[in-house]
Design a protein around this nucleic acid. Structure first.
Lengths: 208, 208
DNA sequence: CTGGCATTTGAACATATGTTCATTTAACTT
DNA sequence: AAGTTAAATGAACATATGTTCAAATGCCAG
């Protein structure tokens, strides 16, 4: 047996990407062998090297694609200008939650497998992540400048908010006791408090 | 060569634990071989099996020790009764930050290597982590019950706060622009806002 | 129907892996 | 000084690893 009936290069490559995302998230990149990955797609180990130079290139491809897609999606979502810092913050929070919650595996990998990148690849990925963090930083700075937010340090605010939001990925299960909309509302409520806008009470009452 | 001069079982075991914590945090459990670990301590691979049944047992030992120590430390730190929910919350936040910031490697492992545990071991570790989360949940419930905190959902509050605080472990470097005390103050400030106590403005002004 | 191209195999390579154990040496007891 | 115990070796085992490549097969244009 050699070439399979109905085979296509792009299809196999896409399947490899998807399988790698799934397996790396579940077991870790180092714990998944090329043979396991290939088997998941129904192919021999050697076939993987037709699409990726080596294991490192595949990992980098996954993270790089993920972060580029994130940047693109935000650019699209933030096209309409908003004057109010709180509205900007809300747009960011909801975008972030929704985008990340449907990409749990990729998100997980993009944080956990950083240490398995070569230094050059690591630098590239970090630069993209940094750019995304700067988006939120800009919103916070704007809010502080306009007197809407009270934050002693916007950089710490960025990490606090992203830490809070990324935590959701760990425990949130679709179809649980909380709908996605309700989740977003509660999270946004806490973020609003975090940045020093104390409209929390009204929001709590509205949610009850 | 067999037994080395000045060797002691407890010492070697402790060194193995320390080396494993360091290496696992840096490269991941699956990516560190028993030989690498042994070499880090200046010993042969076989020696590792005098102290741990296998790789899994070593990993479990690290996580279990870590979480037990956390529980013990909190019990000690929280002995004095506090009536005010905000004071309780402040005690928790500062305890959490200080305890975790000097154990970065162990903390990192205790989150990242969960997936490499057997199901039984995983369950044991999760139970301990859950117990710790319940501490914070209790504080939040108390604060809500007494009308101090405004939170739509204390469980989500737990995850939000722990997410925020654990994020610190990723970026905080000792000797950076922020002292540990200043860090705690800013973080507590944001937590205060998050739970709906809007004393943020005064704190910001005090910090300036 | 045929020839070239795209796609995949399967075997092979060198090396690394987790784990076991008989053997050796150091330290402690008497 | 002799005998016992504690600590560590180093070689061996079976298997798994990432990676390469000539050969084989399916697809499509002429």
């Amino acid at each position: 047996m050699a070439r399979k009936t109905g085979s296509s290069g792009e299809k196999t490559k896409a399947e490899l990407r998807a399988a790698a995302t799934r397996l790396y998230a579940r077991y870790g990149c180092a714990a998944v062998s090329v043979r396991q990955l290939a088997a998941e797609v129904g192919v021999q180990a050697g076939a993987v090297y037709l699409y990726f130079d080596d294991k490192q290139a595949l990992l980098f491809d996954l993270l790089d694609t993920h972060l580029s897609a994130l940047a693109g999606a935000w650019e699209k979502a933030s096209r309409a200008p908003l004057a109010d810092p709180l509205a900007q913050l809300e747009r960011f929070v909801i975008f972030h939650l929704r985008w990340h919650l449907v990409r749990k595996d990729a998100v997980f990998i993009s944080y956990m497998e950083l240490r398995n990148l070569t230094p050059e690849n690591f630098a590239k990925i970090e630069a993209k992540r940094h750019a995304y963090e700067d988006v939120l930083d800009g919103i916070l700075r704007d809010g502080v400048a306009k007197g809407s937010f009270q934050l002693a340090d916007t950089r710490l605010g960025v990490f606090a908010i992203l830490g809070q939001l990324n935590g959701v990925n760990v425990w949130y299960k679709e179809g649980g006791r909380l709908s996605l909309d309700a989740l977003c509302a509660v999270q946004m409520d806490m973020v609003r408090g975090l940045v020093g806008m104390s409209t929390a009470r009204e929001a709590v009452e509205a949610a009850q």
